[in-house]
Computed example of a mutant assay.
Amino acid sequence: MTRNSTAQNRSGAAKDDELPNLVTIVGRGVPSNFEVSVSGDLEMIDADPKAEATVVNGGVAEGTIDTGVYRFRFSGEMANVRLVDWNGVAAPDSPSTPNVHVDYGVANR
């Protein structure tokens, strides 16, 4: 994937009708890489993508997570999720990769 330094974040100002869906990535205490792609638009919420070194461009987010939670609002459908632990072992073969939750049609929290 080509990295783009464009970071998108509305600081919680996303409207439910524009970005009605939510994807949550939960770190498990092990450095891991993630890539999430959707068929519509995607925005990181509750965090600054630049501070978290997360690249968000259109419908794709790419970054790393160790501990904590990253949340993204999106439109469209989930297209792909790729998770790889620090050894390069992909989910579901690694018990250390982050958990991912996808919720459709949820109110902006």
Rank of each mutant, 00 (worst) to 15 (best):
R3F: 10
R3A: 08
R3L: 13
S5V: 11
T6A: 14
Q8C: 07
Q8G: 13
N9E: 03
N9Y: 05
R10N: 13
S11V: 05
G12Y: 02
A13Q: 14
A13K: 15
A13Y: 07
A13I: 08
A14L: 11
K15S: 15
E18S: 14
P20L: 01
P20G: 06
N21A: 06
L22K: 02
L22W: 00
L22H: 04
T24P: 01
T24A: 00
I25Y: 03
I25V: 15
V26M: 11
G27N: 09
G27C: 09
P31N: 09
S32T: 14
S32R: 04
N33G: 11
N33D: 13
N33I: 10
F34T: 00
F34I: 06
F34H: 01
E35H: 14
V36G: 01
V38D: 00
S39V: 11
S39E: 08
G40V: 07
G40Y: 04
D41S: 15
D41H: 12
L42N: 06
L42T: 05
E43L: 09
M44Q: 07
M44Y: 05
M44D: 02
I45C: 03
D46W: 00
D46L: 15
D46E: 13
A47W: 06
A47G: 02
P49V: 05
K50N: 12
A51Q: 10
A53I: 00
T54R: 01
V56H: 01
V56S: 02
G59Y: 03
G59R: 09
V60S: 10
E62Q: 15
E62W: 03
G63R: 05
G63M: 09
T64D: 04
T64I: 04
I65H: 04
D66S: 11
T67G: 14
G68P: 03
Y70I: 01
R71I: 02
R71G: 03
F74A: 02
A79Q: 13
A79P: 00
L83Q: 08
D85G: 13
W86N: 08
W86T: 06
A90E: 09
A91M: 04
A91E: 02
P92V: 05
D93W: 13
D93H: 12
S96H: 13
S96W: 10
S96I: 04
S96K: 12
T97S: 10
N99T: 14
N99H: 08
V100Q: 03
H101I: 15
H101D: 14
V102D: 00
D103H: 12
D103F: 09
G105R: 03
V106S: 07
V106M: 06
V106H: 02
A107I: 07
A107C: 06
N108P: 07
N108C: 10
N108I: 10
R109C: 00
